[in-house]
């Protein structure tokens, strides 16, 4: 029984890591499609979303099987719960990568505007958060997860700056309203990627420290927020 459980948990961890890598790459490809105007890459992202969805189902079924057959407790239970939650966030991130790729087609002629609106900057920050989220799970690193949660504030701040820049630009030049609306939606999507990365960081902290910190404003002040 013990060997079986250990084996199952290791397989589950590997699946999450593989899905994490796949989604990280999907996001990277979608940004390259957007900023390089590479529509072939945008198509690749869209066609590979099926693979993400298949992983999502595989991981759900794997968790269900472990729950049913081994009745896990304590650390094992938290690992499986975390795997389920992270899986759901990764799957949503995969969908967002597809949305960004679709938006790349609409914005293929606006690479200068994207740069002027600092969309490339927010994309770099968000990619860094995604990498941190996956690394925090792989290495069981709660400190890295806490740093990620703090770093998310920078993304929110830049999101707000971009909103103001876009509003100003559209007021100034009504011909840019359509492109501006596309960019506004695009940036919302990018910001959502950061939120999902933050969710993963919160799940990793739950997995390691058994503390539930979601909805907490201050990841450092965890003790009072633990409502487990």
């Amino acid at each position: 029984m013990l060997h079986y459980l250990e084996e199952e948990l290791e397989q589950l961890r590997k699946k999450i890591i593989k899905m994490g890598s796949l989604v990280e790459e999907q996001v990277e490809f979608s940004f390259r499609a957007l900023f390089e105007g590479n529509l072939e890459l945008a198509e690749t992202v869209k066609s590979r979303d099926d693979e993400v969805d298949k992983y999502d189902i595989k991981i759900d079924k794997h968790c269900q099987r472990i729950f049913a057959l081994t009745q896990p407790v304590a650390n094992d239970l938290r690992l499986i719960m975390t795997a389920l939650m992270i899986n759901s966030d990764l799957e949503r991130m995969g969908d967002i990568a597809v949305n960004i790729s679709e938006r790349a087609e609409d914005l293929v002629d606006y690479s200068d505007l994207l740069k002027e609106m600092r969309v490339d900057e927010i994309a770099v920050k968000v990619q860094k958060l995604i990498k941190m989220s996956i690394d925090s799970f792989v290495n069981g690193d709660a400190e890295l997860a806490k740093n990620l949660i703090k770093a998310d504030a920078e993304v929110d701040k830049l999101d707000s700056v971009i909103f103001d820049l876009l509003a100003y630009k559209m007021k100034d030049n009504s011909e840019l309203i359509v492109a501006g609306m596309h960019i506004l939606t695009l940036v919302r999507n990018i910001e959502r990627l950061a939120d999902h990365a933050t969710n993963i960081a919160e799940d990793v902290i739950f997995m390691i420290d058994a503390k539930i910190i979601k909805h907490s404003k201050d990841p450092e002040n965890l003790e009072n927020k633990d409502n487990s």
Binding site: N75, L77, S228
Partner: peptide, 15 residues
């Protein structure tokens, strides 16, 4: 059964 304080407990309750 959710967050035991001791590692020995974790090892025992998880089989």
């Amino acid at each position: 059964f959710t967050k035991p304080d001791k590692e020995e407990t974790q090892n025992y309750v998880s089989g």
